[in-house]
Design a protein around this nucleic acid. Structure first.
Lengths: 204, 204
DNA sequence: CACTTTACTTGACGCCGGTTCAACAACGGG
DNA sequence: CCCGTTGTTGAACCGGCGTCAAGTAAAGTG
């Protein structure tokens, strides 16, 4: 019946471990169902704990969702750290490879994270927007430091908007790629790289 | 107290009118709040009707949301009809102008529509995906018919994914543009046009 | 092996929003 | 003017969220 009653007897974990486990279960459920179709009851059952315990770790369902989103955003920000001195064109390839590997590895978390965009309330959105803004800043900084793209910032007021749009481009491509990956990682990487270069370069 | 009790007495509308009114109210609310923060009660109160009436027009809250999304998708598809024979580069400018005007005019509906992406269940997503797929097809057809971009389809397997990503690009840019429009419509249009041409052209 | 600590369970409860349904009232035809 | 149709109402029901107090048992400590 209950699939996850680990060896039939309940186990006592450290707060950090339990929290981590609950967030992982949450990521999976929020990845597969919209927010209001995920019951706290369901999360507890899969985790093999009682409903009450979830409210011990997270005040409300919304806070739980926010925690899932925040945890994924932290994971992601570590990936996109810019490397000073290296040309953008080279950083881009390496950075996208890392990013795409992460997407495939943490598919559930990635999908759950991007649900915050349209399904979250004010607080959840704030977490989401902060994460996107941080990525945006890193990319803008990398572009500004590059001799090829730096000069753009003096004449183009839309670079920020372009980068934001590009982030949405990547997200959509990756989410579709996860649904059915009939393209290789390298093909997706080249597509995304071409997209950024195309949008921050003058028309050819 | 109740702001919209039209001349203090309740009015009896035709089915079509009432339905239209409810969808308009819904578009506004779903535009400003995430799905589960919109109460059916609230919709009814603003429309000046009872909660029960909403369930007379729409079986469930989800169906109501789906109807809002569907109505907006229908509006949008009329805009993006391709004009055969005209080069893509020209169609793009005119098409984007129309699109951006529509976005500004129906800001509420536009925002509500794109909430379906992450907030909707299976049925709602299906409506949303069908609308996006239709736009995708129109763009792909226009590209394939153009002597400049047509040949691409024989060697590039990622064109479809590229177009899908570009739609996400436009959406993100427009939603941000609606939040605070410090750029002119023409600037946004050029940015979006450059994005498509950059991603479907070989790297320069 | 006690004994303390603290993760964890249990079950009952109030609340609130979605959903149902029988009755009501406004309009149109006879 | 009556009557059927149908837009519309109001209240009750249901189920998940969130609370709480009391208790249970698994780990660490001596």
């Amino acid at each position: 019946m209950a699939a996850n009653h680990e060896t039939r007897t309940r186990r006592r974990l450290s707060t950090a471990e339990r929290r981590e486990q609950l967030l992982t279960v949450g990521a999976r459920l929020f990845s597969e169902n919209p927010y209001d179709e995920v019951w706290i009851e369901q999360v507890a059952e899969i985790a093999g704990v009682s409903r009450g315990l979830l409210y011990h770790y997270f005040p409300t369902k919304r806070d739980f969702f926010a925690a899932v989103v925040e945890r994924e955003s932290e994971r992601m920000l570590c990936l996109t750290a810019a490397v000073p001195g290296v040309p953008v064109r080279e950083q881009l390839t390496a950075g996208l490879d890392t990013y795409l590997d992460h997407v495939r590895t943490h598919a559930h978390g990635y999908r759950a994270f991007h649900r915050a965009d349209a399904a979250g309330d004010q607080a959840v959105r704030r977490v989401y927007q902060r994460a996107l803004a941080a990525q945006e800043e890193q990319i803008l900084a990398a572009l500004a430091a590059d001799p090829e793209f730096g000069p753009l910032f003096e004449e183009r007021a839309d670079v920020r908007l372009a980068v934001r749009g590009w982030l949405a481009f990547i997200t959509a491509v990756c989410l579709e790629w996860l649904r059915d990956s009939d393209l290789s990682r390298d093909q997706v990487r080249d597509l995304c790289a071409r997209a950024l270069l195309g949008v921050v370069s003058p028309p050819g």
